[in-house]
Design a protein around this nucleic acid. Structure first.
Length: 426
RNA sequence: GGAGAGAUGGCCGAGCGGCUUAAGGCGCACGCUUGGAAAGCGUGUAUACGUUAACAGCGUAUCGAGGGUUCGAAUCCCUCUCUCUCCGCCA
């Protein structure tokens, strides 16, 4: 959530900044809402104050044995409007809250201005795309050729955008996740966590998926309540610090978490319909950090580097791009995408997205820490895929395929497959 | 799913309609004391929102959550959530 103080003090500047990401801030609506809030709140608090004073007076008078009849009548009259006012305050605060909740995060000053992915800025490339001396197949053909990837069966069981993996590919998929967890815990200092895959609406609100992006989620009704399948481990993991005040010495918090992710992909019909690139269910190893504000941009660089390490160890060519203002997720202040080389598509495709949310999520979650002066302050939250397991599998199948239809196992993963060097048709 | 017991500040724990602006203790911070420490003594010790230049002061709210009764609710009533104990079922 945006800082309301910022809107009050710098409305024009914030409005201009938000416009760079294609968001039109309704200035007048805000000013009106604020004026209304101020009026109702002042009046309500004044009446509450008077109510408290009357109650105290009556109590004291009663203790002395005085007749409190007239006082009570007076209090009753004075309090007559309070109930309505309190309800009105509640309503106006909810409207204000609703207004604020859908405003995206103003981008960090270092973020390039732009409208579409075309305006993203490449930062660096690593690795040389391999040149094939045979026609490179895409991962679907590689996987189906091995008899270990089956979309038709998945469609029968569930529907479109699911997959069934068997044998060597299922095992490779598992190995990838294990490998990532091990690297991040052993080499990068993250603590592994296991979390719920169903979360309540409050958690979804905290990280910013709700109220605006409900159509992207799978919702599970539960009586009057709603549960949601997590679209990323970011949601449960970041919400660990919701409504918490973390002692300074525990920062930064660094969590790594392997979960399935569930996305409805509403509105992406016809996009990446082939293969495992865009599924309703996929596995991901997620990195989450909670830091002091001063440390968050350094942490973003580090976290991005941690994700890159995986690709380097797997010897998969990639590039890093800075998302432009128009292409970033609403909650993010700055995002780096890491894109892996997919030979069959002859292009780089997103395999990780690393973002600094600054205090945007923390404000929604009331995730705070106690600073050196002992004062409570909002933390900064960050996360990044480290990496998307399904897409990593895709990258390996495509980049490590051999002419005979087999797939070589990247050397970093062999230890996880009992030394196996190659996946061949059984 | 059934029966019962609970939920109070960082922690323990009293309060069960008005001198509670939540007792008392522990912890923590600072001060006094001391050669230094402990003990002792004293002072302080929540969060959110508003107002504001102010993380100064003042106001409002918060005793699991929501609603109700009342001039006044931690305290009474209703609904819900969660925790614990026992039974049932279960990977």
């Amino acid at each position: 959530m945006i800082d309301i103080q910022l809107l009050r003090s710098n409305l024009d500047a914030v409005s201009a900044r938000l416009a760079t990401r294609g968001y039109r801030l309704e200035r007048d609506a805000f000013l009106e809402l604020e004026a209304e809030r101020k009026r109702v709140q002042s009046e309500t608090q004044a009446l509450q104050s008077s109510r408290n004073a009357y109650a105290k007076k009556i109590g004291q008078a009663k203790a002395k044995g005085e007749d409190v009849g007239p006082l009570m009548a007076e209090a009753s009259a004075a309090n007559a409007r309070l109930g309505d006012l309190e309800k009105a305050l509640e309503r106006v605060q909810q409207r204000l809250q609703g207004f604020l909740a859908v405003i995206p995060n103003p981008p960090h000053e270092s973020v390039p201005t732009g409208k579409s992915p075309d305006d993203n800025v490449e930062q660096r490339r690593w690795g040389m795309p391999r040149s094939f001396d045979f026609p490179a197949k895409d991962h679907v053909d590689v996987g189906e050729g091995l008899g270990m990837l089956d979309f038709a069966t998945a469609t029968k069981i569930a529907g479109a955008r699911f997959s069934v993996m068997t044998g060597g590919i299922a095992r490779l998929h598992r190995a990838i996740a294990q490998f990532m967890l091990d690297v991040h815990t052993r080499e990068h200092g993250y603590t592994e966590v296991y979390v719920p895959y169903l979360v309540n609406a409050q958690s979804m609100y905290g990280t910013g998926q709700l109220p605006k992006f409900e159509q992207d989620l799978f919702m599970v009704p539960r009586g009057e309540e709603k549960w949601y399948l997590i679209p990323t481990a970011e949601v449960p993991v970041t919400n660990i610090v919701r409504d918490e005040i973390v002692p300074l010495e525990r920062l930064p918090l660094k969590f790594v978490c392997h979960t399935p992710c569930f996305r409805s992909e509403a509105g992406s019909y016809g996009k990446d319909t082939r293969g495992m690139i865009r599924q309703h269910q996929f596995d991901k190893v997620e990195l989450v950090q909670v830091t002091q504000p001063e440390a968050s941009y350094r942490a973003l660089e580090e976290l991005t580097g941690h994700a890159e390490t995986i690709l380097k160890k797997l010897e998969l060519p990639y590039r890093v791009v800075t998302l432009c203002t128009g292409d970033m997720g609403a909650a993010s202040a700055k995002t780096y995408d890491i894109e892996v080389w997919l030979p069959a598509q002859n292009t780089y495709r997103e395999i990780s997205s690393c973002s600094n949310f600054e205090a945007y999520q923390a404000r929604r979650m009331q995730a705070r820490f106690r600073n050196a002066k002992g004062k409570v302050e909002l933390a900064h939250t960050l996360n990044g895929s480290g990496l998307a397991v399904g897409r990593t599998l895709v990258a390996i199948l495509e980049n490590y395929q051999n002419q005979d239809g087999s797939v070589s196992v990247p050397s970093a993963l062999r230890a996880y497959l009992n030394g196996q060097e190659k996946i061949s048709r059984a």
